[in-house]
Computed example of a mutant assay.
Amino acid sequence: MDRSAYTSMNAQEGEHWWFVARRAIIDGLIRDHVALPDDARILEAGCGTGGNLALLAQHGSVDALEYDDEARAIAAARGVATVEAGALPEKVGFGDRRYDLIALLDVLEHVDQDEASLAALRGRLAAGGRLLVTVPAVPWLWSNHDVLHHHKRRYTHDGLAGVAAAAGLRVEASGYFNSLLFPLAVAQRMAHQLLRREAPLDARPAPWLNRSLQQVFAAERHMLGRINFPIGLSLYAILSA
């Protein structure tokens, strides 16, 4: 990502509605779909500045890899995980350690070789382990936001499933999320394009609006797996070897 994107992430992921609500979604997916042992080993591949590490640490002992030097230093300074340099697909790191859960959270869209990256992580799953993937969805929503964050692609439901299958992984559960706010997001992106606005789409809104958006998005944690949303800004998949 651009340096400005990492700077924005570090500044906002503690309070911005999207980051806070997404952590609630991730926590719900783990609790509802991943049966972890008491001594679970967890890897976050591509941890950025480490905003998800404290959440993941609630579920087990966490290792994390990150390519960017400055982001990695910030993540390591949080003191909740062992953080090493790494890059997908060729450098997962941590020797031959196997994991009960590998989290790949809005990372796959950044790598050139998505199939090879999933295959590399498949080889690091422990027996019965799961790979939790989240990615941006709906290719026709491509915008300057994707360019700023160095996305290579946005995924469709079938497209993500196809990449997983080609990597030798089975889909245990999958679906769209960030769906309740989808109409608002589409309208916002259309307005940005029509008016040629340069303000970033991920700027934190006013406190009252930030709270409202967080509540709406986080409410989906009670629905995933029970309601199959037909579309959403993001996709999740829980994969097994």
Rank of each mutant, 00 (worst) to 15 (best):
H150M: 15
I42C: 01
L36N: 01
Y6F: 10
V163M: 07
Y99R: 10
F217P: 09
L180I: 11
A57Q: 06
G95I: 04
A219N: 04
E115K: 09
R221E: 05
Y6A: 00
R197P: 08
A87T: 09
A5V: 10
L148W: 08
R22H: 07
R221M: 06
D114G: 08
T134E: 06
A87R: 11
L235C: 05
I238R: 03
G168W: 10
V135P: 08
H16S: 15
P230G: 05
Y67I: 09
S117E: 11
M9K: 11
E15G: 02
I30D: 01
A11P: 09
R3D: 11
L56W: 00
R98F: 06
I25H: 01
I30K: 00
L194D: 09
I102R: 02
V34D: 02
G232E: 12
I102A: 04
S234G: 12
L65Y: 05
A165D: 14
V186K: 10
P207Y: 08
E70Q: 02
R196W: 06
K91I: 12
H157D: 15
M223T: 14
D146W: 14
L160T: 15
A77Y: 07
D96H: 07
L105S: 14
S174Q: 15
A21S: 09
G50A: 01
I30A: 01
V80F: 02
L121Q: 07
A203G: 12
P183Q: 09
V107R: 02
A203I: 14
P37L: 04
L105G: 10
H192C: 15
D146L: 13
V34A: 04
L101H: 03
L160I: 13
D112V: 10
Q58H: 11
I26N: 01
Y6S: 02
A127Y: 08
H150Q: 15
G128P: 07
A167T: 13
D202S: 13
W17Q: 06
A40S: 03
Y67C: 06
G51Q: 00
A218D: 05
H192R: 15
S179R: 14
V83R: 05
Q113C: 12
G128T: 05
D146C: 11
H59F: 08
H16Y: 13
P139M: 07
F177L: 06
T82R: 13
G128V: 05
S4Q: 03
G48A: 07
L65H: 00
Q188M: 15
L101G: 04
A24L: 03
H149P: 11
W142M: 11
P37S: 00
D27T: 08
L29Y: 00
W17P: 03
A40C: 01
L104F: 14
L195A: 08
R41T: 13
W18F: 04
A54P: 02
L224P: 11
A206T: 14
L141H: 06
F94L: 11
R72F: 13
A187K: 12
L43Y: 09
A237Q: 02
D68F: 00
Q113E: 15
N228W: 14
K91G: 12
A206Y: 09
A191P: 11
G86W: 12
L160P: 14
T134V: 13
L55T: 05
L88I: 02
I30T: 00
L131C: 07
D112Y: 08
A40W: 06
L180K: 12
L169G: 05
E115F: 07
A219K: 03
V171A: 10
E220V: 10
